[in-house]
Write a protein that binds this DNA or RNA. Structure first.
Lengths: 162, 162
DNA sequence: TTTTATCCGGATAAAGAATATCCGATTAAG
DNA sequence: CTTAATCGGATATTCTTTATCCGGATAAAA
């Protein structure tokens, strides 16, 4: 049971994309360089974010990616769902209907107690991720970082779009 | 991101093992038959439960598996951890240290905000699973089941150990 | 218009994890 | 001693994740 690497990558990327100036964007290659991750694979992950409406892309020369909406309107759950899909981690295969003492189908209209318990647990997980916005993540990061580092990043972004 | 099938299998098994009479056990083959799951693979999962101290095994003729302790002293988290291992779903690879604007190692003593947020979410997930005991699961199941079905199961168990 | 830079989508390949099976060793009951 | 059963390791298979590549579309700049 493990989250895809793309979740870590794209979350970090979403947390730095707000530093891109208005009307501009960062290319996949630039983003891949920034975190030293494989460019071709990252491109796939960025497409997932775009289809989920989290980032916006501009084609052609000078194009690239930027956030599609405000950082306080994007949650970690949005990103995880975009990359991993909406499927629950625990999938009930109804084995209670199997075997010599299996239940009849008509007696299984409600989900079994075990599936229910896991569904509850996953719901609390999702709620915790939904409560954490990108804006909040950035604020926490700024607290533990230095002004110089912010300037360093801003400078790097400038050079990419130039 | 998905839980192993073994989690579903062994949870259902743990929820029926208390029906095994004192001093007896069910073989892996019997358990596999009960839920129509592959016997050889289930054997591996049962070994994991045993190493985690959830079930107790007796070798030799007439041997088999039974719960190692009281159903209200076993939680769903115990079972998931036994099967899946203790590793978190989100694994931070410290990509904040990568690339042209990467942080120095000495500035990364505390986990990054993103890893922290996921750790919090996973903790709520674990707490929800820890709050659900096997005894509670069995009680819920009894509510939605019929006395006849219980008798049916008890009879089947009898025939297995005989 | 041509060139260059970029995203888009599909096809494909490589790596790793989950799933599944088998067999010899070990242990206990009869 | 013989038989039944688990234990543990080795191995095979299948599926998912990870990763790469290429042809096409789009847009800006030369």
């Amino acid at each position: 049971m493990q989250l895809a690497k793309g979740v870590e990558w794209t979350t970090h990327i979403c947390a730095m994309l707000p530093l891109v100036p208005e009307g501009q964007g960062l290319s996949v290659d630039a983003l891949a360089d920034y975190f030293e991750v494989p460019s071709a694979y990252l491109a796939k992950q960025m497409q997932l974010l775009r289809r989920a409406g989290i980032v916006r892309s501009v084609r052609g020369k000078g194009g690239g990616y930027r956030l599609a909406r405000s950082p306080d309107d994007i949650t970690l759950l949005d990103i995880v769902t975009a990359i991993e899909g909406p499927m629950p981690a625990f999938r009930c295969t109804e084995i209670r209907q199997n075997g010599p003492c299996g239940l009849k189908r008509k007696d299984c209209k409600r989900p079994c107690e075990i599936a229910s318990a896991f569904a509850v647990a996953e719901q609390t997980y999702r709620e915790a991720l939904q409560a954490k916005t990108l804006a909040s993540v950035m604020q926490d990061a700024a607290m533990n970082s230095s002004p110089e580092h912010m300037v360093e990043i801003a400078g790097w972004v400038q050079r990419q779009v130039a």
